[in-house]
């Protein structure tokens, strides 16, 4: 399990439950590596600020993370973490590799109005 304070998704069923029960979802799928940790930290800080969004993480190497790894939107990705933004269960944005707080909040503000 990833060493973060975010909600951890550990299975395909938890992933689909999360999407079913939340309108706006951001999932960061990675490892405890240098490109991933800064993204988790930004998400932990934004949790209090964006109450309308569910923030979660998923271990990239877990077999069930294929729900993220195999997304068509992540087809060209070659850098961790894979970060996926869902609205009503549909992918609205996906990014690869490290992102800054400004880049993340720009996506949240564009796709999930507060």
């Amino acid at each position: 399990m990833l060493n973060t304070n975010l909600t951890h998704i550990t299975s395909e069923s938890e992933h689909s439950e999360l999407l079913k029960n939340n309108e706006n979802v951001m999932i960061c799928c990675g490892r405890m590596g240098p490109m991933c940790i800064p993204v988790y930290e930004v998400m932990e800080e934004l949790e209090g600020e964006y109450k309308n969004i569910k923030f979660a993480d998923m271990e990239f190497d877990s077999p069930d993370a294929r729900v993220i790894r195999n997304l068509p939107e992540a087809r060209s990705f070659q850098g961790l973490p894979f970060t996926i933004y869902y609205k009503n269960g549909k992918v609205v944005k996906a990014t690869s590799s490290i992102q800054s707080r400004d880049q993340i909040t720009a996506i949240l503000d564009e796709h999930f109005s507060k």
């Binding site: 490892r31 590596g33 240098p34 490109m35 060209s76 990705f77 070659q78 850098g79 690869s96 490290i98």
Partner: peptide, 17 residues
């Protein structure tokens, strides 16, 4: 192409290659 072929971390992204 950052994260789509360009990387700055071998231990993070090496296995994609």
């Amino acid at each position: 192409f950052k994260g789509k072929g360009i990387s700055y971390c071998a231990t993070c992204d090496g296995d994609f290659f």
